[in-house]
Every structure is written in structure tokens, then in C-alpha cells.
Design a protein around this nucleic acid. Structure first.
Lengths: 335, 335
DNA sequence: ATGAAAGCGCTAACAA
DNA sequence: TTGTTAGCGCTTTCAT
């Protein structure tokens, strides 16, 4: 790769003139500028960012740490954030980490590269190392929240989401409702489960008939297994509500495979709003989250704080509200 | 951020001793090593990659340029490549670029950052600038192919894909078949269309009854519009085959919305193998691509070539074969 | 309007 | 076993 010195030699000027010409410094004559640019173009010169960073230039890299990019939910976040970064001169570095070790490694690498900042959807039980690293580096938490990270958080009102979905089922007259959710090691899993329970309390319905199933984060096989088990019970639940998108997908697939239909055999409220949920069977009643908006808000807030050198560790938190979209998969239970 | 010099001062040694201790150089005594590590830990020291790069260290950044991360197809590529990079000590920088300008900007930035290399799914009509840049930088093309890029290419056998899908319809007895595909400015769009045509030739069926509709890349609205138009014709096609995943999705949604059912009203072969295609209506007959495998193969090949400093501009090309999965959405036409 | 030189943080060749 | 020094490519004083 050509360096500024090579350009300088070929153009018959000094290195500093090259730097100034390319930076469009007013002190350089138009004639010199155009010649330098000419030569730079010929040589395919592209400024060396690492060298610039050593001179104090900040990196344009924003690290994004996600558990799973194949999940439409996270893909939407990546897209929104990428757009946000891109239009502000930044570049997204995507790290996919499902476990604390990989997470620690990627965080270290991003910090080593002196990225401008990190947007992270944390894993369930992060290593202390990760925490110490992040707490001394500009970052923001998205969706999931780890209390020991001293940083801002942008998430959705998980508890209300599930409370509303569950109330919809209770209002229809269901009592034996199953909740299949994500790991309680995650802030999201915990809050969603709390919302499920709160619905019963607030509606004054006995919780004894409720069923709760939890699984590891970013896996969904347990969801399919669980739903089959539930349907094989002597008294199967009359309704089902899910707590993660992956579980929703797994369940839709297994129910279709087994010929179980909603709402006749069981009513279903699905967590998440993938486009295909519209046309599953009679249309899936879903909990829809303004995820694109959340990601953009988070991105703008973060970039603004980075650029104005404001601290990002000020425990700011922003809650987005989800809404229930009622389709054909929920109906009153058969008497 | 703490520097090696600060660590050196606090540990009472020289900068080079710090560097060597942290690199586990055998010449440094165990005692010194542990003290240096101790101090480094206290100060939260993380080596400065930009500075190392100036000393010849190579970046661990692999740029991935995609048109659309929300497309499950591309998300799968990102996931596979991320995994591949991650397990080889690299890090993925994701750039989403749909148009030549954004593409040029991102390529410049990646090169400026002196990334280790770029994996690119090129846009339809890239700028000359992008071409000149890439041709002097390690890169590899994925899926789409631009002839003026002097580089290896990993893709699928698009022509055979569509030929096979079309033949399936012809074999069932369809003649009035519509093809709704992607832009012919793309190598993929072109090849798929050629496959559609070849099927008629090879089966000896008159092409006059066939219908072809093309649209811009990474948009799908035209697909939904086109399918409605087609169905409103006095003699609507009896079968439909799509040429992009986005179009497939758009069509499934609009058909569901309008109450058009397959295969009664029309037979459908969908391009792509999203999980939800299994349970659209009677199950969608699809063209499945070994995309994960393709991405991993591409990643391994590329990383290997980068590491062994082999040139990546050797016009290597690798074709993966797709297969047809027959489900309920295709049947013989009603007489 | 341009050049010379210092220095960012690090590694490696050379000294000791 | 450790320290000293030069230099990677760039920007930015300070000089001219």
C-alpha cells in the first residue's frame, strides 16, 4: 500500500505538504493540491487509519455484540444500527457471542482496536474481566441489562409485554396457561416471567393452574420439547404464551408438524413480530416490539455521547413499550 | 487508557520489558513477568492495536459487505463467517451497502483501517473507484460476481437452480409459467433468468407462454404488485417461480392476504429456504441453497490465503449446487 | 506556501 | 535478564 512519503516523493513535495493537500488545508496552493491528488490517485493511496489513530484520531469503529444474527429481531437491530453508524461516519464491527468466554475475547479485541465504543446485548453471566474492561470503556447496553455494568441501557418493557399478553388470554377465559420463556439468568427472561405472574395477580386469577417452563438463552429446542410434553398431559393447557422469539419459531414449527391447530386445540400468544407470524395458521397473536426505533434511539444517543466526549456510564435508561397484535390464534377456551 | 510506558513506570521496568513480559517472551524472568502482569491488570492495560499495526502487525478485521442483513439468507452468511473468523482469531466488520456510493465509502474505510481483507457481495453497478480499490486489496466475492473484480468468487449454481425448479413445473404439465426475479444487472439475476429459459429449451416447451418480470435488487415490492397483475389477467399463469428470497417472502404474504391458495389457484416454486417456508400454506416447494457451507468454505479459503500471504486475485471460482425440496405448493395444473 | 522535525505506542535489533 | 534506540505513517508545531 502506498504511503504519504511515496506520494510526496513522486509529486516532488514533502510529506507534510501531502498531508495538508489531501486534508484540503487552505495554506496549500491549488496547483500543488491538484498535483498531489493526482499522484495519490495514481498510486491508489488511502490514508493509514492506524497511523492517524496514533496521532489522536478516533476510530470510526462501533462494536456491536449480539447473541445471534440469524434471529430477525437482532438482524433488525444490526440493520438499524448500521444505518445509524453509516450516516454518522461510523462503521459497525459485528461480534456474535453466545457465551461469556467468546464475549470476553471479543470485547478485549474491540478495546484493543480502540474502537469508538461498544453496543452490547450482554450474555447471561458475563465474566468479571468483561465487566472491568467495559466499565472503563464507552459502551451501552441494549435489551438485556447487567447491573454490574455501569452504563446506560436501552430496552423494552418486558414485564408489561408479557403481562398484557397474559391478560389477553385471561380475559378470554383461559386459566390453564403455559408460559415457555427464556433463561431467568437474563434480565429479560426474569422480567417477562414477572409479567406473566403479575397478570394473574392483577386479574385475581389463581396461579395454581399456570405452568412455567424456562430454557437456556439462545436455544429453542427445549421449547418444542416442552410444548409436546404439555399437550400430552391428561389436562393440557388451553393456552400458551412464549417468552422469546426463538421459542415462538420452534413452537410454530412443531405445532404445524404435529397438526395441532390454533385456536381450536390451544390458544397461542407469540413473543416477537417476525413478518411470517402474520401467516402462520390463522395468524399469530403477537407481542410486537418497536425494535428498529429502539436500536436507532440507542445508536443516536450513544454516538452523540461519544462525539461530545460525554461519559456513557451515567445509568441512563430508556424503556420502549411493546404492543399486542391480536390475530386468529387466540380465542376463548372450549368449555 | 493506560499505555505500556505507564505500566513500565509503575512496575519499575523499561517499556520493552513490559512488551516482552506481556508477550510471554522466554527471556524475561518469571518474577518480572508476574509483576508486570499484575500492574498491567491493575491499570486495565490493553495493548494498542493501531500502534502494533504500525509495527507490522496485521489487523484482525475482516470486512463483510452485504446488501441486507435482515434477509435470513445474508444473516446466515454473516453468522457462518463470524464463526469462521472468530475461531481463527479474526473479527468481522459488517457493512451494509445497497448502493454503489455507500459501497465505495465502506470499502475505502475498511482499506483505510487496513483490514486484513474484505468479503463482498457486490452491488449491481459498482463504481470504478471501488473496483480500483479492491483490485489492490485482498478480497473475495460471495454470491454475486462482478467481472471487473480480479478476485476469487464463491457462489451457487444459479442457472441450474432455476432450471431445475422450472423443469419441475414443466414436468407437472405447466406451460404458462411466470418468473419473477431479481435485477438482470446482477450476475445472479442474469444466471437465474437464463436457467428459467434453459428449462423450456431442454424440455422442448414453447417459451411463448412464459412470462418474465424483473425488479431492482434488494427490493421486493414489485414482486407483490406483479403477482397481483398476473392473477388478474384473462389467462393467468398456472405456475409461478421466484428468483430472489425477498420476492418469495413478498409473494407469500400477498397471496395469503388475498386468499389465493396453492396449488389450487396457482403452483409455486420459491427461491430460498427460510425456515418458515415449510409451513406456508401446504408447504412451499423451494430451491434450497447450502448457504452456510458456502460461506464457511469461502471464509476458510480466504483466511488461509490471507495468512499465507497468497494472492487472492487468482480468479478461483467455486460453485455450490442447490437442490429442490418438493412440498405441497406445486401440483399439475387444472385442466 | 512549504519543509523539517517531533512524537503518538509499540516491537525488535542491538547493547550491555 | 534487561535496557536503549530506531522507526512504522501520520499530523502538527515551528521554522523558513
Amino acid at each position: 500500500m502506498a504511503t504519504a512519503r511515496e506520494v510526496a516523493e513522486k509529486a516532488g513535495v514533502s510529506v507534510s505538504t501531502v498531508g495538508r493537500a489531501l486534508a484540503d488545508d487552505p495554506r496549500i496552493s491549488a496547483k500543488t493540491k491538484s498535483r498531489v491528488r493526482e499522484v495519490a490517485g495514481q498510486l491508489g493511496y488511502v490514508g493509514n487509519l492506524p497511523a492517524r489513530q496514533m496521532r489522536g484520531a478516533k476510530s470510526n469503529l462501533i462494536g456491536l455484540m449480539l447473541p445471534d444474527i440469524r434471529n430477525y429481531f437482532y438482524a433488525t437491530i444490526a440493520e438499524a444500527l448500521s444505518e445509524c453508524c453509516s450516516s454518522n461516519g461510523y462503521q459497525l464491527a459485528l461480534s456474535i457471542a453466545n457465551d461469556p468466554e467468546t464475549e470476553a475475547r471479543h470485547v478485549t479485541e474491540l478495546i484493543s482496536a480502540r474502537a469508538a465504543g461498544i453496543v452490547i446485548v450482554p450474555t447471561a453471566n458475563p465474566k468479571r474481566e468483561t465487566r472491568d474492561l467495559l466499565n472503563n470503556f464507552p459502551h451501552v447496553q441494549l435489551l438485556r441489562r447487567v447491573n454490574s455494568y455501569k452504563s446506560a441501557w436501552f430496552g423494552i418493557n418486558d414485564e408489561d409485554c408479557l403481562c398484557e399478553g397474559t391478560k389477553h388470554l385471561l380475559n378470554l377465559g383461559h386459566q390453564r396457561i403455559a408460559y415457555i420463556g427464556g433463561s431467568r439468568d437474563l434480565s429479560t427472561g426474569n422480567a417477562r416471567r414477572a409479567g406473566f405472574r403479575r397478570a394473574f395477580t392483577e386479574m385475581g386469577v389463581d396461579f395454581d393452574n399456570a405452568i412455567e417452563v424456562f430454557g437456556p438463552p439462545s436455544s429453542a429446542q427445549y421449547g418444542a420439547t416442552a410444548v409436546i410434553d404439555l399437550l400430552n398431559r391428561p389436562e393440557p393447557p388451553t393456552a400458551l404464551i412464549t417468552g422469546t422469539i426463538r421459542v415462538t419459531q420452534a413452537i410454530l414449527e412443531i405445532l404445524h408438524q404435529r397438526g395441532v391447530s390454533a385456536p381450536e386445540d390451544i390458544s397461542i400468544v407469540g413473543f416477537g413480530d417476525n413478518p411470517e407470524f402474520k401467516w402462520w395458521g390463522p395468524g399469530l397473536t403477537t407481542i410486537c416490539m418497536p425494535i428498529e426505533d429502539l436500536a436507532t434511539t440507542c445508536g443516536l444517543w450513544f454516538l452523540h455521547h461519544i462525539e461530545s466526549e460525554k461519559p456513557t456510564n451515567l445509568l441512563h435508561s430508556s424503556l420502549a413499550n411493546a404492543s399486542l397484535t391480536i390475530r386468529g390464534s387466540t380465542a376463548p377456551p372450549l368449555k
